[in-house]
């Protein structure tokens, strides 16, 4: 185990963290403003990845694909908001879970219908291929580094949007008192559609960015969705700041746990058992962490 490898793993953890943030930001905004639990957020992530892969293979340009992913996911989000989600705001969480679970079935099977069962591949743009030398002799893929940077920039942009713009003021007002901002003349239905489409676009972008690292396939959004739930529960539902810090925490703990636990256990156990137990324990680590945090702070670290 070398320092260079540890730094590489740490960066991988950060990269997972910022992608989780893109997912979690939308989920937590949607919950904070509309009080809606949206299981179909993972489907929007998948829509973004498929749109990017399809456009990139048609035009040959990854960048056009990224734009397509934002547009397709935002459009899909706006459409389901108007057709389905809008009817769920006044319902209890159980109905929301079920209706969005139904949307997952529809999206997954619909995507399989259009694109077939085989995974698509998305190539990393040529300008970001290859590795970058970092201080300390670490070679790290340029694309992953760009993903970390992009995630960080989007987080800053989102913070600016929410704290500095008129739309942000309305979003925050909507979180505090939705009847009152309706009474003040804000068109709350449009605001909800906009917030939902914004969350969807972020999820779609995350799907496209990760799609170039993994394969683009049906069901790719579900593991990420569940991790994003863990993130927003740890961060405190409705809190963007909480989501950002919890996303980095979950990303780093998950990646470093998988890397370090087998090594740590190998000092006290025979290697094969250390690998097995370390593997099992590290896949449970973030859930154990979540249980601990919730046992002491049942509403998350930064409850709104």
């Amino acid at each position: 185990m070398t320092a260079a490898l540890a730094i590489e793993q740490l960066l991988n953890g950060l990269q997972l963290g910022v992608m989780l943030f893109l997912m979690a930001a939308g989920l937590t905004l949607i919950f904070g403003v509309m009080g809606l639990i949206n299981l179909a957020h993972g489907s929007l992530y998948m829509v973004g990845a498929f749109a990017c892969a399809a456009v990139a293979s048609l035009t040959g340009s990854f960048w056009l694909g990224l734009i397509a992913s934002l547009a397709a996911a935002a459009a899909a989000g706006a459409i389901i908001e108007v057709l389905v989600i809008r009817r769920l705001y006044s319902r209890d969480h159980l109905d929301q879970v079920l209706a969005t679970f139904a949307l997952i079935l529809i999206f997954s099977e619909g995507t399989r219908w259009v694109f077939g069962s085989f995974p698509l591949y998305l190539n990393i743009p040529s300008i970001l291929q290859g590795a970058v030398s970092l201080p300390g002799g670490v070679q790290y893929p340029a694309y992953r580094l760009a993903v970390i940077a992009a995630g960080g920039l989007i987080a800053l942009g989102l913070a600016a949007l929410i704290t500095r713009t008129r739309l942000g003021i309305r979003i925050r007002a909507g979180e505090n008192d939705r009847e009152m901002i309706g009474a003040l003349g804000v068109d709350i239905r449009t605001l909800y559609t906009v917030v939902f489409a914004l969350g969807a676009a972020l999820a779609g972008l995350a799907g496209a960015l990760v799609g170039a690292l993994q394969s683009v396939q049906v069901g790719m959004g579900e593991p990420v969705l569940i991790l994003a739930f863990v993130v927003i529960v740890i961060g405190g539902i409705g809190s963007i700041k909480g989501a950002f810090l919890a996303a980095l925490l979950v990303g780093v703990v998950d990646t470093m746990g998988r890397f370090l636990l087998p090594h740590l256990l190998a000092t006290v156990l025979p290697p094969s058992e250390a690998g097995t137990i370390g593997g099992s324990a590290s896949s449970m680590l973030i859930y154990i962490m979540m249980a601990f945090i919730l046992a002491f702070r049942p509403r998350g670290l930064f409850a709104a």
């Binding site: 639990i37 569940i226 249980a291």
Partner: peptide, 16 residues
């Protein structure tokens, strides 16, 4: 916990 936290924490335990 209650409400949406309960939904998600039971989900997380099952995933674990």
């Amino acid at each position: 916990t209650s409400g949406v936290y309960f939904i998600m924490i039971t989900l997380a335990f099952a995933q674990m």
